[in-house]
Measured scan of single mutants.
Amino acid sequence: DVEEQIRRLEEVLKKNQPVTWNGTTYTDPNEIKKVIEELRK
């Protein structure tokens, strides 16, 4: 469920934690926001 994935990513973003997505770890909040934007398409 895309909405659920977006919610999880936004939670991690608020906590300033790194996100691992498709084998890539993102630590930059701007990169995480880009992943969220991609999911919304």
Rank of each mutant, 00 (worst) to 15 (best):
D1L: 13
D1I: 10
D1M: 08
D1P: 14
D1W: 15
D1F: 12
D1G: 11
D1Q: 06
D1Y: 13
D1R: 10
V2Y: 11
V2K: 08
V2A: 06
V2G: 04
V2H: 06
V2F: 09
V2Q: 06
V2S: 06
V2T: 05
E3P: 06
E3I: 08
E3G: 08
E3R: 13
E3L: 15
E3K: 10
E3D: 12
E3T: 10
E3H: 10
E3F: 14
E3A: 11
E3N: 10
E3V: 11
E3M: 12
E4N: 07
E4Q: 06
E4S: 09
E4M: 08
E4F: 05
E4A: 08
E4K: 06
E4L: 07
E4W: 10
Q5S: 10
Q5F: 12
Q5R: 04
Q5V: 14
Q5E: 13
Q5I: 15
Q5M: 14
I6P: 02
I6H: 01
I6E: 01
I6Q: 01
I6N: 00
I6S: 02
I6K: 01
I6C: 03
R7L: 13
R7M: 07
R7F: 06
R7G: 05
R7N: 08
R7Q: 07
R7E: 06
R7S: 09
R7W: 07
R7I: 10
R7Y: 06
R8F: 15
R8Y: 15
R8G: 09
R8W: 15
R8K: 14
R8P: 02
R8A: 15
R8S: 07
L9E: 01
L9Q: 00
L9R: 00
L9N: 00
L9T: 01
L9M: 07
L9I: 10
L9S: 00
L9W: 07
L9K: 00
L9V: 02
L9P: 00
E10I: 09
E10N: 06
E10R: 03
E10K: 04
E10Y: 08
E10F: 09
E10L: 10
E10T: 08
E10P: 00
E10V: 05
E10Q: 08
E11V: 05
E11S: 08
E11K: 05
E11P: 00
E11L: 09
E11Y: 02
E11D: 12
E11C: 04
E11G: 06
E11N: 09
V12L: 15
V12S: 15
V12N: 14
V12F: 15
V12Q: 15
V12E: 14
V12Y: 15
V12T: 07
V12W: 13
L13W: 06
L13Q: 02
L13C: 03
L13V: 09
L13K: 00
L13E: 02
L13H: 03
L13G: 02
L13M: 11
L13A: 10
L13I: 14
K14H: 12
K14P: 02
K14Y: 12
K14E: 13
K14I: 12
K14M: 12
K14A: 15
K14W: 11
K14Q: 13
K14V: 12
K15L: 15
K15Q: 14
K15T: 14
K15Y: 14
K15H: 13
K15D: 10
K15P: 02
K15S: 15
K15N: 15
K15R: 12
N16T: 06
N16L: 08
N16D: 11
N16H: 12
N16G: 15
N16S: 07
N16R: 11
N16A: 07
N16F: 13
N16M: 11
N16P: 06
N16W: 07
N16Q: 10
Q17F: 15
Q17S: 09
Q17E: 15
Q17N: 07
Q17Y: 13
Q17W: 14
Q17H: 09
Q17A: 10
P18D: 09
P18F: 12
P18Q: 11
P18N: 06
P18Y: 07
P18E: 10
P18M: 11
P18L: 08
V19R: 00
V19N: 02
V19T: 06
V19S: 03
V19L: 13
V19E: 02
V19D: 02
T20Y: 14
T20Q: 12
T20P: 02
T20C: 05
T20M: 13
T20F: 12
T20W: 13
T20L: 12
T20R: 06
W21K: 01
W21P: 01
W21Q: 03
W21E: 01
W21T: 02
W21F: 14
W21H: 08
W21C: 03
W21D: 02
W21L: 11
N22E: 11
N22M: 13
N22V: 03
N22P: 02
N22G: 12
N22L: 10
N22S: 04
N22R: 07
N22F: 11
N22T: 02
G23M: 02
G23V: 00
G23L: 02
G23T: 03
G23E: 03
G23W: 01
T24R: 13
T24A: 10
T24H: 14
T24M: 14
T24N: 13
T24L: 11
T24S: 08
T24K: 07
T25S: 08
T25N: 05
T25Q: 09
T25I: 14
T25C: 05
T25H: 10
T25W: 12
T25L: 15
T25A: 06
Y26V: 04
Y26A: 01
Y26M: 13
Y26K: 01
Y26W: 04
Y26Q: 01
T27R: 08
T27P: 02
T27G: 06
T27A: 08
T27N: 13
T27K: 03
T27S: 09
D28I: 02
D28K: 02
D28C: 05
D28E: 11
D28A: 05
D28M: 04
D28Q: 03
D28G: 05
D28N: 07
D28Y: 03
D28H: 07
D28F: 03
P29V: 08
P29I: 07
P29Y: 09
P29N: 04
P29S: 09
P29L: 09
P29M: 15
N30T: 14
N30H: 10
N30W: 10
N30D: 15
N30Q: 14
N30L: 12
N30E: 15
N30Y: 13
N30G: 11
N30I: 14
N30A: 14
E31G: 04
E31W: 03
E31F: 05
E31A: 07
E31S: 08
E31V: 08
E31T: 06
E31L: 10
E31N: 04
E31H: 07
E31I: 07
E31P: 01
E31D: 14
I32T: 01
I32W: 02
I32R: 00
I32S: 01
I32G: 01
K33V: 09
K33R: 15
K33Q: 12
K33C: 04
K33M: 11
K33E: 07
K33A: 13
K33L: 13
K34S: 08
K34F: 06
K34N: 08
K34A: 12
K34L: 11
K34W: 11
K34H: 09
K34G: 08
K34D: 05
K34V: 07
V35G: 00
V35Q: 04
V35N: 01
V35W: 03
V35F: 12
V35P: 00
V35K: 04
V35H: 02
V35R: 04
V35I: 15
I36M: 05
I36E: 00
I36S: 00
I36H: 00
I36W: 03
I36V: 04
I36L: 11
I36K: 01
I36N: 00
E37Q: 08
E37W: 05
E37C: 07
E37N: 07
E37S: 08
E37V: 05
E37Y: 04
E37R: 06
E38T: 10
E38Q: 12
E38L: 11
E38F: 11
E38C: 12
E38K: 05
E38N: 08
E38P: 00
E38R: 08
L39F: 03
L39W: 03
L39T: 01
L39V: 03
L39G: 00
L39N: 00
L39Y: 03
L39I: 06
L39P: 00
L39H: 02
R40W: 09
R40N: 10
R40V: 10
R40M: 10
R40F: 05
R40H: 05
R40L: 10
R40Y: 11
R40G: 04
K41Q: 14
K41H: 13
K41I: 12
K41L: 14
K41S: 12
K41W: 11
K41N: 15
K41M: 13
